[in-house]
Design a protein around this nucleic acid. Structure first.
Lengths: 145, 145
DNA sequence: TATGGTCCCTGTAGCAACTACAGGGTCAAG
DNA sequence: CTTGACCCTGTAGTTGCTACAGGGACCATA
């Protein structure tokens, strides 16, 4: 009746393996199966997967998406929760941007300092080796990811 | 004679487990051992680990750092290679920044659209559910990471 | 000498969010 | 009846760490 996993994959631009992964972690409900044990998806699944892909495209992590999906299933609740999740994510995006801008300027500086020549006099290598020069040491893990 | 792993850890701001991890993947050479089988680090190890931490702080991945370390050991070579690695990294940082800026503006837009009320009329949820609205679909995997 | 506390050792498993097989089954076309 | 495209399960790999478990080493004190 519905669509097979390959069709859902094409319809949403999602890798087949990723769809099965989402099912395994409980992000998508397990669909019914055909006689030959193929997954048989409905419009509901399509909508939900599109929701997930949009949210992932906006960089929400899967925990956030779970919360957003729960909210979507309770249309009468206040949407403050959704706002909170989105605002929190926006903040983390902004933090990443400013961190990356800092990296960009340090890298640019390093690169313009390098005027060619031998490794032994390369400013890039010097900057990396110098113990006291780099402002990027001791950055909490994972802020870049 | 030298320093134990905990001292190296404190001296470089690197987790002990991380130091052992770097040894395991061959990024740091295995140090000699004391009679009690403790790792015994020298100044050379300290320098190398500082180099690695600086480069990681600048967002270089471990493959790049391996290359940079190889270069550092051949001081008479041309430093064009180092320049290439750094420039390539700068480009990827810039790509991430522009991607994140795009996300930021989409998120901001979404959030300002939401005027509170119920989930059923929340613009955030609408935007995520809407099939044709989101410009962030089909982004190559991992460009955000 | 016993005891405690702090360090250190190896080895393995976990995280996020997938991706990539291996080794097999299903189904429609020719 | 075979070919090829698709589908299935299950497991392992990716990156850069982090977090144990279960045990040794070393030093100070009682």
């Amino acid at each position: 009746m519905g669509m097979k996993i390959g069709e859902l994959s094409r319809a949403t631009g999602t890798n087949v393996e990723t769809i099965r992964y989402y099912e395994r972690i409980g992000l998508l409900p397990a669909p019914s199966r055909t006689a030959g044990n193929y997954r048989d998806y409905s419009q509901t699944h399509l909508d939900r997967l599109n929701f997930v892909r949009h949210a992932r495209g906006l960089g929400f992590d899967i925990a956030d998406i779970r919360s957003l999906l729960n909210l979507a299933e309770q249309p009468d609740r206040d949407c403050g929760e959704a706002d909170k999740i989105a605002s929190g994510h926006l903040k983390s995006v902004e933090a990443k941007i400013s961190r990356l801008e800092q990296l960009r300027s340090e890298l640019k500086h390093m690169i313009t300092q390098c005027r060619g020549g031998q490794v032994s006099e390369c400013r890039i290598m010097e900057a990396l080796g110098d113990h006291d020069h780099c402002s990027t040491a001791h950055v909490p893990n994972g802020i870049l990811s």
